[in-house]
């Protein structure tokens, strides 16, 4: 990519343990100072966020699968990434339903026979058809299956009581997702739309962080400041790749455009976030 990121000097890019282990120990211990009732509000708000995204996921999936059924490859290609974003944002909850997560979002690597595996379905199966085969032939059943699964997910989540530790832990889980599969560009290997998913994961993590921020700040204000700065850092880096700075819906450049240097620039703050957010549950006294 032509514009290798400037190496910005930033005090904001702070690192977790400076004098490593000793500093960790000096960090405020979670004495469950956060009363369980205090978590009720943020958890309820988070459920609203998830339901909201699910609603979007259902309607976008409807358009996406309709395009496939109509044999419109180009349109389906265009709708692929913008549809997935809603799923990527709510992954910590979606993953609670392992059967659906597998049929909606598994990658070919999850199957011994790869793309040929009859159990390989969902977004990535359709991605392979659209971006590798450039065809929708024989994809109707996968499109229909995806629509059914997404509807199923929506109804299951409606009735779900959100466990606070899953919600809070979700922030870290999303960053682990990013660190494991987004930075490497493995997620959307045919469409190269990894940055959409990347942003979706970051959005989802940030939402959780923002909801619990006031509680976390009572425990450790420095932590909150550091995490905030690292989120800003990641988003700023991602923004470099937006096709239109003023229109988020325009999306991102292909992951092929991301140079090794840029990848490294992303890895830094992502790893720090993963490390920091892994302590959020403890900070709030959750197990």
């Amino acid at each position: 990519m032509k514009r290798t990121r400037q190496w910005i000097a930033t005090g904001a890019f702070a690192l977790l343990p400076l004098a490593p282990i000793t500093a960790l120990l000096a960090a405020p211990a979670a004495q469950a100072a956060v009363a369980p009732e205090a978590l009720v509000g943020p958890v309820a708000d988070y459920k609203l966020y998830v339901l909201d995204n699910l609603e979007q996921l259902v309607s976008h999936t409807r358009d996406f699968t309709a395009a496939i059924e109509a044999g419109d490859v180009e349109k389906a290609q265009a709708l692929y990434a913008p549809t997935r974003v809603y799923y990527e944002r709510i992954e910590p909850i979606a993953e609670l339903f392992a059967d659906l997560d597998a049929s909606i979002d598994a990658r070919e690597d999850d199957y011994e026979k790869g793309v040929e595996d009859p159990d390989f379905t969902g977004f990535h199966r359709l991605e392979y058809a659209l971006f590798h085969d450039h065809s929708t032939d024989g994809m109707e059943k996968y499109a229909q299956g995806l629509m059914d699964d997404v509807n199923d997910l929506d109804s299951r989540v409606q009735g779900l009581t959100f466990p606070p530790e899953t919600v809070v832990g979700g922030a870290a889980a999303l960053m682990e997702e990013v660190a494991a599969t987004k930075v490497s560009g493995e997620e959307d290997r045919y469409s190269r739309t990894d940055l959409w998913d990347f942003q979706g994961n970051v959005d989802g993590a940030r939402e959780i962080f923002e909801l619990f921020k006031p509680l976390a700040a009572q425990e450790d204000p420095d932590f909150v400041e550091r995490v905030q700065a690292n989120f800003d850092d990641v988003e700023e880096t991602l923004a470099d790749y937006r096709l239109d700075a003023d229109d988020p819906s325009a999306g991102f450049e292909s992951y092929d455009e991301v140079s090794d240097a840029d990848r490294r620039a992303l890895t830094g703050p992502v790893t720090v976030l993963a490390e920091d957010l892994s302590t959020l549950r403890g900070l709030l006294g959750l197990n």
Binding site: P17, L18, A19, P20, I21, T22, L24, L25, A27, A29, A30, S278, T279, R281, G282, L283, G285, L286, N287
Partner: peptide, 26 residues
């Protein structure tokens, strides 16, 4: 940080304990 960790690791010692609600430091 590298120097400090290398100095510890090569000489050995006890690993610190941490509140179990947090990821362990080691």
């Amino acid at each position: 940080i590298l120097t400090e960790r290398m100095a510890f690791l090569t000489q050995g010692g006890s690993i610190p304990e941490r509140n179990p609600l947090f990821p362990p430091p080691d």
